[in-house]
Design a protein around this nucleic acid. Structure first.
Lengths: 226, 226
DNA sequence: GGGACGGTTCGGTGCCGGCCGAAACGTCGT
DNA sequence: ACGACGTTTCGGCCGGCACCGAACCGTCCC
């Protein structure tokens, strides 16, 4: 072996079933406690603790101790994208194996978050609507139009500038079609949640569109919420 | 453990130093023989053989037997992107440890391929030139302009349509800045090689710009080749 | 045909890493 | 102060896997 490539170390973090389960859960963009993740993955608290230390040391997760709790979350949008991309490439879209899993699947297929932006049928529908309305264009690459940028900032306020791309086509697991990610996607999702147009169901990534949300989405984008 | 996520299996393929070295070598976009890869990574042929079987079975590589040779290459551009993204996220950009490595590094920093498109200083310079010339725009997302699309097809012919995005901002290892990937980036790179504007150095990803290439790049894009 | 060469199969070895339970630690609430 | 709770540390067990060398199989070339 010439020299150990950093690639292998990073991939090694995700190469374990338990750690992968943790990371996928954390794709909801929120902070989880060590115990929650342990129960979620079905391992002993001591096992989870060791895994979290690896993930934090590896730079994939950030943590904060609050009293007797240890909160962890994905380090940055880039880490989330990495995990999303890997999962998307790997996913053979296997059919769910239990009734409960099928129900969960159906709910999150309707509307969910993908780290910090909208996904599922809702995410794809909104993206399609943005394309129809001319806010977005994808013929020559995924990009906001000038009009779209103006309207979006009118709606959600100034978009934060930084290294992160403004828009990004994120491939949807269930729909197998791209939806809007990047800074713009995150801002739009934040707005939808802030306005109460959608609320999270339980602890997962699934969303439920509220009645006012249904109205707003129809008025703004002509989207019939699923 | 609830259920073994496909993510872990995929990451597991890249989680080994030898397999990671293989994949990074294959990022040059060409087909390698099993023996070449074994020597490159410094492992016994038998070890390499087993690793290649795993990578092929995992879907990351394709293979073809020719006589007593086993040729392998990356399965598709998506796989290459995945590996690139992981490597880019993981790379702490460590300084080279030997004189030979430093020389190699310097050569490939000037101009190289990134699977199937241009990277290194040349790749970034060309991308910057395309932005200056108004072929590309990145204010509202990385996309070709209408004029850019027209000029590019004039230059390299019709671009193949498919699921792969037309353009993509690929973060450069050495330059730490985005360069043009996607279908357009691949087409441009192919044109540069087809025209003999650049040739590969040795077996790596490094490129050398030829004299006619230097002229062409200056005339077309105003780029002074490194 | 014979030898060189690339690749594969097989057996054996050693190590790494994931898992748990028990015990200890610190925090929080009563 | 006490007990409940979330988390961590430690020890020990176990399985998996990366590695090699030797033998074997095909192909190519002289």
């Amino acid at each position: 072996m010439t020299t150990d490539p950093p690639l292998a170390a990073l991939a090694g973090l995700l190469a374990d079933a338990t750690r992968a389960t943790f990371c996928l859960a954390l794709l909801d963009g929120r902070a989880w406690t060590a115990g929650e993740l342990a129960r979620h993955a079905g391992v002993a608290p001591s096992t989870a603790s060791a895994h979290l230390t690896l993930l934090v040391d590896g730079g994939l997760l950030l943590q904060e101790r609050q009293g007797r709790h240890r909160y962890v979350w994905l380090a940055d949008p880039a880490a989330a994208q990495l995990i999303e991309d890997l999962a998307a490439y790997a996913a053979p879209a296997l059919p769910p194996r239990t009734l409960k899993a099928a129900a969960r699947e159906r709910a999150s297929a309707k509307a969910r978050t993908c780290y910090d932006h909208l996904a599922g049928r809702l995410g794809v529908a909104v993206t399609d609507a943005l394309l129809d309305a001319g806010w977005l264009q994808q013929r020559t690459g995924f990009a906001l139009t000038d009009a779209g940028l103006r309207q979006l900032t009118d709606l959600v306020g100034e978009l934060p500038a930084g290294r992160r791309p403004l828009v990004r086509a994120c491939l949807d697991h269930t729909e197998r079609r791209p939806h809007l990610g990047g800074v713009a996607g995150a801002a739009l999702c934040r707005h939808v949640l802030d306005q109460g147009w959608a609320v999270r169901i339980g602890t997962g990534r699934a969303l439920r569109v509220t009645d006012p949300g249904r109205v707003a989405l129809r008025d703004l984008f002509g989207v019939e919420a699923p």
